[in-house]
């Protein structure tokens, strides 16, 4: 196995994710992408805020939402954000094994989150008949939550792909930016979730 960009541990630089031009470009490009994602989610939040009282006689937010499940989902996603911080910490110390382990823990927590969200949607649909087509509120709710859940799911398969593809490569300057960028994506997903649980669930419960 030969790697074009691999460096042995003695010469691993301080910030492996930005040591190459490709890494630097990915870093800038990804922050640009996150700026765009901010606007995407803002448009969905704005739509939700505009339409969350348009229930068309169907169930309203404060009848539907259960804070217990939302709290569990919040803790799952917040903890997975911390475990990916741990993974990047081990990446900076050039410890590929521990980095992989913490990314696997992150993925498990992420699947826990998606599982809770699917249960939640299933519960709304079967118990309340609350679907995407129920009302303007339903459309805005599922569009916002679905976009976020879709991002989480995409992130999970992205990381699984990265782990499988690089399992035998070890850490090098070619794949360090890939792992780092994924951690940025994962933190950003948590940022969006902070606003979802605040604006949709907590403010929905208050009224």
């Amino acid at each position: 196995m030969s790697h074009d960009h691999s460096l042995n541990p003695e010469t691993m630089p301080h910030e492996p994710e930005k040591a190459t031009l490709e890494g630097k470009n990915k870093f800038i490009g990804f922050w640009f992408f996150l700026g765009g994602e901010t606007v995407l989610f803002a448009s969905l939040f704005g739509t939700y805020l505009a339409l969350h009282n348009s229930t068309a006689g169907g169930p309203a937010g404060n009848e539907l939402f259960g804070l217990e499940l939302v709290f569990v989902m919040t803790i799952l996603l917040l903890t997975s954000s911390l475990t990916s911080v741990y993974a990047i910490y081990h990446m900076k110390n050039n410890d590929f094994g521990k980095m992989t382990l913490w990314f696997i823990i992150t993925i498990i927590l992420g699947f826990g989150f998606v599982g809770c969200e699917l249960y939640e949607f299933h519960h709304y649909i079967t118990e309340y008949g609350f679907t995407f087509r129920s009302s303007a509120f339903g459309s805005a709710f599922y569009a916002l939550l679905g976009f976020h859940g879709g991002h989480v799911t995409f992130g999970l398969f992205w990381m699984i792909t990265l782990l499988i593809r690089n399992a035998r490569r070890g850490l090098n300057l070619y794949n360090a930016p890939k792992f780092y960028i994924w951690s940025l994506y994962w933190h950003f997903i948590d940022v969006v979730w902070v606003f979802i649980f605040t604006v949709v669930y907590l403010m929905g419960k208050v009224g």
Binding site: L34, G35, G36, T38, F45, L49, A50, L51
Partner: peptide, 25 residues
Amino acid sequence: EMASAMIYGGIWAAILAVAGLSTIV
């Protein structure tokens, strides 16, 4: 610096989007 510029640019557009859409009602 560039990362901050991107994110604060995004947040600026986000505030406009939320303000615009939510005041339509």
